[in-house]
């Protein structure tokens, strides 16, 4: 049941990305292009997604996950170097390409060779991240 629900969740997520236009790199880069022909669509997508999610977080206060286990732990308020450095690197790649991880996976079926190459590069980057992370941790300890 967990896996069936996960499949449905992935399908709904993918349908949402396609309908909202977030698999179109022009719309995403249009959102980031504040000095050009700015496209506010991404703000509507974020707003539309945050509302049901906020309701769900409220519901987690009085119940437990339907399939058992526990809800994710409360968020850690610590702002470390990793969150800043990682998000800046991610933002730079997002601005260059117009793709973030969700749409990069969701467009695999229609993104052509370019989309496949992007996904491959992204997976390599994900494989390299633990090394970069431990270097950042070490750097944080010494200075």
């Amino acid at each position: 049941m967990r896996n069936l629900m996960a499949f449905l969740v992935g399908g709904l997520f993918g349908a949402g990305l396609l309908i909202s236009g977030m698999t179109d790199t022009r719309k995403v880069q249009g959102w980031l292009d504040i000095f050009g022909d700015w496209d506010p669509t991404l703000a509507f997508v974020m707003g539309g997604a945050i509302i049901p999610m906020a309701v769900a977080w409220q519901m987690t206060r009085t119940r437990r996950p339907v399939f058992g286990g526990d809800f994710p732990a409360p968020t850690d308020p610590t702002i470390d170097r990793k969150i800043a450095v990682g998000s800046i690197l991610f933002g730079a790649g997002w601005g260059l390409s117009g793709l973030c991880p969700g749409p990069a996976v969701a467009s695999l079926g229609f993104g052509g060779w370019g989309g496949l190459a992007f996904l491959a590069a992204m997976l390599i980057g994900m494989g390299l991240a633990p090394m970069a992370k431990s270097r950042l941790d070490a750097g944080g300890a010494t200075g």
Binding site: F118, I124, M126, G127, P130
Partner: peptide, 14 residues
Amino acid sequence: VGGLLVGVGTRIAN
């Protein structure tokens, strides 16, 4: 370059 940055950055930032 975009793919590498997105992959490494999102995993560093979690």
